[in-house]
């Protein structure tokens, strides 16, 4: 039987989302499909699966990603579903908990961890620019309408606030990602 839940997670909340999905799996609800807002779970025995969300460059249908998914499958890690965004995709994978009792770890060396953080940081920079431009565009509409026509553009004001809020949140997440990259690079100077 399927049960649906509605929740919002942003790109910088990947770990939080993953923790929630794994908590659901512990209670016998295993993710079957994820949408932008809706998550469908099927009832399974508790703790049957362990989940890992991954953020990849390119669409889920690209040759490189299809090859990667096939490789993961050979490792017992299966793609459950994915969400495509411009230039990237957010992939939900799972494996049997008995095969991965300590959780699914995809990167065991520093270089791979740095590359992963770089993909994430790159997308966050794109989001910062996009939301900033969208926010400025809406703000200019609000200002022009107020000055020229004396009109109060409620919808544009709301859009401006949303865009700037997303921009700030993306900026904070990007700073964190770059700090992680810096930390990993320092570590690499001493260790592999």
């Amino acid at each position: 039987m399927l049960r649906s839940f509605y929740k919002v997670f942003f790109i910088w909340q990947l770990e939080k989302e993953q923790a929630w999905i794994n908590e659901m799996a512990q209670h016998g609800y295993s993710l079957k499909h994820a949408g932008r807002l809706r998550f469908d779970f099927e009832e399974t025995e508790p703790d049957r699966y362990i989940y890992k969300s991954i953020f990849l460059k390119g669409s889920s249908g690209s040759d490189d990603n299809i090859k990667y998914f096939k490789f993961l499958e050979e490792m017992g890690i299966n793609v459950v579903c994915y969400l495509n965004y411009p230039g990237t995709c957010w992939v939900y994978t799972r494996a049997l908990k008995e095969d991965y009792p300590d959780g699914i770890e995809l990167y065991s060396d520093i270089d791979s961890k740095i590359n992963y953080q770089k993909v994430m940081a790159g997308y966050l920079v794109f989001l910062i620019i996009f939301t900033l431009l969208a926010g400025l565009l809406n703000l200019s509409v609000v200002i022009i309408a107020a000055k020229a026509q004396g009109r109060f553009m409620t919808l544009n004001i709301i859009c401006t606030v949303i865009c700037f809020s997303l921009c700030i949140a993306s900026f904070i997440a990007a700073v964190k990602a770059y700090a992680n990259i810096k930390k990993l690079k320092k570590e690499r100077q001493l260790h592999e």
Partner: peptide
Amino acid sequence: VKLAAGTLYG
């Protein structure tokens, strides 16, 4: 040494 799948693939 425990290789992770993503690292091995790369």
